[in-house]
Design a protein around this nucleic acid. Sequence first.
DNA 1: TAGATTGTTAATCGATTAACAATC
DNA 2: TAGATTGTTAATCGATTAACAATC
Lengths: 211, 211
Amino acid sequence: MDISKATLERFPLYHRILRQAKESGLTHISSEEIGRRIGIRGTQIRKDLTCFKEKGTPSVGYNVDRLKTLLEEFMGINLQREAIIAGVGDLGKALTKFAGFSHLNISITEAFDSDPNKVGTTIGELTVKPEEDMIKTIQEKGIVIGIITVPVKTAQDVADEMVSAGIRSIWNFAPTTLKVPEGVFVRNENLSVGFALVGHKAKDPNNQETP
Amino acid sequence: MDISKATLERFPLYHRILRQAKESGLTHISSEEIGRRIGIRGTQIRKDLTCFKEKGTPSVGYNVDRLKTLLEEFMGINLQREAIIAGVGDLGKALTKFAGFSHLNISITEAFDSDPNKVGTTIGELTVKPEEDMIKTIQEKGIVIGIITVPVKTAQDVADEMVSAGIRSIWNFAPTTLKVPEGVFVRNENLSVGFALVGHKAKDPNNQETP
DNA sequence: TAGATTGTTAATCGATTAACAATC
DNA sequence: TAGATTGTTAATCGATTAACAATC
């Protein structure tokens, strides 16, 4: 079955609620309760979950443990995975150190930069390597996940290198549209879009006409 | 007229293309060309732009300068705005220093943290202030945009404080669903969602069944 | 004029929601 | 049994796209 983009983006939210539920000792949780905690309808959740074999029990809800495990298998969280990051500016460093990703079971195990001043510096336990080593490292370690936090002007080149070395999924923070071959996934996390929206919505509501 | 969420999120992309076009000396640009540069259809762009008074010229395209200005007015970029940030961990610091926001004309002018070890430290030209001063500062300076990069457990409290002090639009990076009163805008920038998706999509395509 | 590109309508596609019989 | 909550269908809502007359 084909799972929609919208549903796929909600799975991590469901997973978060299930982790919380488990932590607080719940064995079962209803779709309405999950919905309440993330601000959507229960129907939505029941619909999203139809793609799993696991069924809920009427008047009881979903088995927290089993649903959590199933989501983890689906999302790949049951596998320990490695990712590399290109570009260790402030954002790159922040992502590399970010604790909030720990439950995804993806470790950023290699960091690269083209700036000789950054090469050799450390981020936590990682030592930054020169950009020229990236392709070789990706190939040797068989890494398939790449993160791009380089400036716009080099982002496409870095993406090309990643793809040529075997990266299959790219998390791109450079505000530009990357061209990648069919079969390679790119998620653009253009932070300016969010900030622009927040700025726009802050406009005085008495002053909000369309020009 | 009511502008859809999807359209609103594309305006910053259009703005980026118009900046580039202007920089490269173009006076006019067609909807198809804009579309090509961001990977969507021209029709989509023409539809999105119907809410503006500015019209394109058949066989010529849109006036780059005028459309850019119009988008800026609509998004509020013509106004110099201030934002505050709560939580100066690595991510908070990275956002505060991030150069990519400069064209949005929103400056992060105050940073707060509840950790006494961070209070008094500097980020670029900013000096981190104690969390307790946040409400007063927001009120005195009349700031309406807030950024939350504190841990989940304090995010709701910080949001409540921001709202009580007059913040009208919040950019939230804590992976939790904030409750805010009607009329306050929240944009959740849950980075785990993106990273989870990138991880999922990296799974071996020969191994991608639904459980 | 011929070619390009617009603005707009209607068709399509995709996502959400309401409703409710089934069932624990 | 009565109440709660499921899975699923049909209705609705929203977003994208194709098509094309209008026009520079």
